[in-house]
Amino acid sequence: MAVSIEQQAKGGGKADIRYLTPLDIETKEVKKYCRFKRKGFKYIDYKDADFLLYLVNEQGKILPRRLTGTSLKFQRKVAQAIKRARHIALMPYVADMLK
């Protein structure tokens, strides 16, 4: 212990402070795609509620595009279909633990 202090005093000792280099764990950027465009959907039916449940979170709220990655055109169709399904009580407006 004493030796190292002397050594450091003489300045010969290696400075063991290492600067934190940014950890460059390269995260693969998963390209989001619109599942409706890729599958060739033309119309989203407001009557089959169990399909629409995929596009809604636990509280029954519509999932945003940034999470699902759907295109604007289909997000509008999905939103309209969900709102119609809610109107005829196939889907709840507010729910808890929907899934």
Partner: peptide, 8 residues
Amino acid sequence: LKKLAYAI
């Protein structure tokens, strides 16, 4: 007869 998602 179907169950409604909320009471009407």
